[in-house]
Design a binder for these strands. Structure first.
Lengths: 345, 345
DNA sequence: TCGCGTTTAGAAACCGGTTTCTCAAGTTCA
DNA sequence: TGAACTTGAGAAACCGGTTTCTAAACGCGA
């Protein structure tokens, strides 16, 4: 079975290629009899149009890309499916790519998407911002815009007015502030801050929110309780375990900047012979599915993730040359469950 | 900044388009001076080749698609990243699409990929097999093969010799058999089987494995302990809770056919006032990350997920017309952690 | 200096569609 | 019955690259 072209179909049906194209497109009058004849030929030859040829002349490529650092985090997966749900109607193709946190790879993907003449590229999650990165991103963004593509930063701050991009953020710093305030209002004053990569936008903002809340309540921040680092289960477990095993149970709560970290911290506390939440309260961030799986169910800062994805997709695909709305901020809030209680004296 | 074409570059550099194309391709001798001249023009005009035009003449589209029912399950995410890791080298594009479990959508995506002249399409996970579905899949598979694409079933049984596809499976029935045997060897005889959609290949096989192990040990299967249904947290919690609240604590172990279900069951058991694992042992399936987050850490049937993804990608992209190896079966095994102990009498 | 092989580069065909321009056939109205 | 108008369909240009075919320029030995 050889691949058949539109010319094969035309020959088989005894019409011109233009007519076949018209039947395919459906946006030009074709007599009913001719149409059925063509359709039958298409059927018989098992003809399928070549998307590349179509994109080449039609110019619109119907491709949307979503880029995250990893596919294995529920947060990203959720955003991606939010985008995909919105996008995959009307025969649009949605491409989900991961970069393994490699900034280089992110720019590479951007270049690839520019080659593809993608309709939109959605970059999700924080990034370690350097001047050099800023420059390259600015160039790529302009390049994408030049071929009619739109760039969306999702859960990542704007790069300034010289980078043509739509920004969809959530109250990241505010969420950390609210979470910390929640712990303080329950009577905690010695609060471990676990996770958050310094220098990376997401982590920095959350740490800032923590500090702001502490300052507002006049509580000094003990730098020994600050435990920044990679978002990893192992890291979190070890850090908490170390401190507890050293006999330093000098905190009553842990604010983990990620639910996974919260889960690992929970294990560490228990394995050290303490109880959650009686001896140590734990607060997470992201409110991902795992929050429900943990026991006790995890109190966590909720991010409207699907909404984030949908909004990003909506703004990415909004019609028109100039962009109507180019900055959206979504709210976050603390979801109270069972892992935070007042400290027992 | 208007998009520039290869002809603009040629004019700017004072050479022919053929020369520019050669500089781009790098597989044809071009004098050093000419090359630098062209490269400078490319730089100055900020030229990026159109991937569609390239695919149209070059015929190879460098696109691999991976299709799962949802992006939110760690199992699928892991397979996808396995595929992507293998695939995204050498400038290939990897497209991750979800179907929301819609069989229709799956076939639709297949059609789209055929239009894209995709190099390979990888279908992941079980499916509810109907004769009608089989027929349509067979047609699509042949269509894809006709344009040089390869179809891979990953974690899904073969559709028979009339469907040209590569199959990468794991010992699904065997894993359920091993898991059940593990429980039996620890002294359990009344084992709830939780989850598994009947009629869907994945669930059916796991249920079969359970029954086979029970039969081998001469233990009658109590149909009242069979609790098939959607793979959902809510469902699992409710079913276990119902039975326990009705005073029917007539089982000593739960074999959940998915780790998420296991986690929910764990909650239900505890909320009903019982202990895990002392009163009820729990065994999961998939050995996803959540197994480590649960407390006690979940004993689970391990699937070599990344290996599954990598193998699928490797076989999908193996060069040559005829397929060398078209069926691979990967092993599964029980990973023992803390959620299964002998029943206390 | 001539003849021959080797680089290097241009002209043009081609990939497979869409779309514009053009015209023949059929319909309506005076 | 003929002019004006509508409808349907073909020819050919075009999208933006790659590749084949061809030829000019160059180097080198005789």
């Amino acid at each position: 079975m050889a691949r058949s072209t539109i010319r094969d179909v035309a020959a088989h049906a005894g019409v011109s290629v233009a007519t076949v194209s018209r039947v395919l497109g459906g946006n030009y009058p074709v007599a009913a009899r001719t149409r059925t004849k063509v359709l039958r030929s298409i059927e018989e030859l098992d003809f399928v149009a070549n998307a590349h040829a179509r994109a080449l002349s039609g110019s619109s490529s119907k491709l949307v890309a979503i880029v995250t650092s990893t596919m294995n985090a529920p947060f990203y997966a959720e955003v991606a499916s939010g985008v995909e749900a919105y996008t995959s109607v009307e025969g649009r193709l949605c491409m989900y790519v991961s970069t393994n946190g490699d900034v280089q790879r992110e720019l590479e993907v951007l270049g690839l998407m520019r080659e593809q003449r993608a309709e939109a590229v959605i970059l999700v999650g924080g990034v370690a911002m350097t001047p050099e990165y800023h420059d390259r991103m600015a160039r790529y963004a302009r390049g994408l815009a030049a071929v009619g593509g739109r760039l969306v930063f999702c859960g990542r701050p704007s790069l300034g007015p010289d980078v043509p991009a739509v920004v969809v953020e959530y109250e990241n710093e505010g969420g950390a502030h609210a979470g910390t305030s929640h712990l303080i209002s329950r009577g905690h004053r010695r609060i471990v801050l676990l996770g958050g990569i310094p220098g990376q936008t997401t982590g920095d903002d959350r740490i800032a929110g923590y500090r702001r809340a502490m300052a507002e309540h006049g509580i000094p921040v003990d730098e020994a309780l600050m435990m920044p680092g990679q978002f990893g289960r192992r890291f979190a477990y070890d850090r908490i375990r170390e401190r507890l095993d050293a006999g330093l149970h000098d905190f009553t709560a842990i604010f983990a900047l990620d639910d996974i970290l919260a889960g690992a911290a929970m294990h560490a506390v228990r394995d050290a012979g303490l109880r959650v939440p009686e001896d140590v309260s734990i607060l997470g961030y992201n409110d991902s599915e795992i929050a429900l799986d943990l026991y006790p169910a995890l109190t966590s800062v909720h991010i409207p993730v699907r909404e984030l994805g949908r909004t990003a997709a909506r703004l990415a695909l909004q019609p028109g040359e100039g962009v109507v709305r180019d900055h959206v901020m979504l709210g976050t809030h603390v979801v109270v469950r069972d892992s935070v209680v007042p400290p027992v004296r």
